[in-house]
Amino acid sequence: MFELYLQALRHGSPDNVLEDRFQEDLLNIYSETCLFDMPDSIPATIVDTDWYKFGTGCVECRKADYPPMAEYLDGIAKGDDQQIAKYKEDCLATKARFPKPF
């Protein structure tokens, strides 16, 4: 559904580019499905969408944003505690950026 957004997320695009992709995708979806009935409010961010809250959006966004597991394994193999700590920080940043909807 939000393929452009996920693609930009996988490539590490900055937040402003991600939000542009999100808005572009969202407007395309609404223009294709609601020719004359635009909703009163369009979600401002990806975490405000039904796709994120009730679908697979949270999982897909987190999966695309997590750092590669190879970084963690490389840190373990080299015994590099700083690299391991950075990997964990990046994972926590992803969790904060894309919180689980409850």
Rank of each mutant, 00 (worst) to 15 (best):
W51G: 00
D15K: 09
K95S: 05
L35H: 08
Y66G: 00
A96H: 14
D74E: 10
E19M: 05
L92Y: 07
I46N: 01
V59H: 12
W51M: 00
I42K: 10
C91R: 04
A70E: 15
F98W: 15
A70H: 11
D48R: 04
E89S: 14
E89Y: 05
P99K: 05
Y30T: 10
A85W: 03
A70V: 12
G12K: 00
Y5S: 03
L73Y: 15
K53F: 03
D20S: 15
Y66W: 09
L27V: 11
A70R: 11
E24W: 11
V59Q: 12
C91F: 02
A64V: 06
L27A: 04
M38S: 14
A64P: 08
A96M: 13
P43W: 10
D90L: 08
S41L: 07
I46S: 01
D37Y: 04
D90W: 04
K63P: 00
S31I: 03
R10I: 02
D25G: 02
F2L: 11
S41H: 09
A70M: 13
D50P: 11
E60I: 00
S13M: 10
Y5W: 08
R62V: 06
N28Y: 03
V47I: 15
S13Y: 02
A77Y: 10
M69I: 15
C58N: 14
T33M: 05
P14L: 04
L73W: 13
D81G: 06
L27Q: 10
E32M: 05
L92N: 12
A44I: 02
S31R: 04
T49F: 06
F54D: 02
P68C: 02
V59Y: 10
I42L: 13
G55K: 12
L26M: 13
C91N: 05
E71C: 04
C91V: 15
K88G: 02
A64K: 01
E60V: 01
K95C: 06
E71K: 08
D48H: 14
T33G: 00
L6T: 07
D40L: 07
L92D: 15
A85S: 14
N28D: 11
I76V: 15
G79H: 11
G55P: 05
K78T: 02
P39H: 03
Q82P: 03
K95E: 13
L4P: 00
C34M: 11
T33W: 09
Q7D: 12
M69Y: 08
K63S: 11
T33F: 01
D20C: 11
A8R: 08
T45I: 09
S41N: 04
A93N: 08
A77F: 07
C58K: 07
V17Y: 08
T94C: 14
D65W: 03
K63Y: 01
F98A: 03
H11S: 04
P39Y: 04
A77G: 09
P101Q: 05
I46W: 03
E71D: 14
P43T: 07
F22Y: 15
E3G: 09
W51I: 06
Y87E: 02
C58V: 12
G75F: 11
A44M: 04
Y72K: 09
D15Q: 12
E60A: 07
G55Q: 08
K95D: 14
V17I: 14
M69K: 10
Y5E: 05
Q7I: 01
K88E: 15
G75N: 11
P67Y: 07
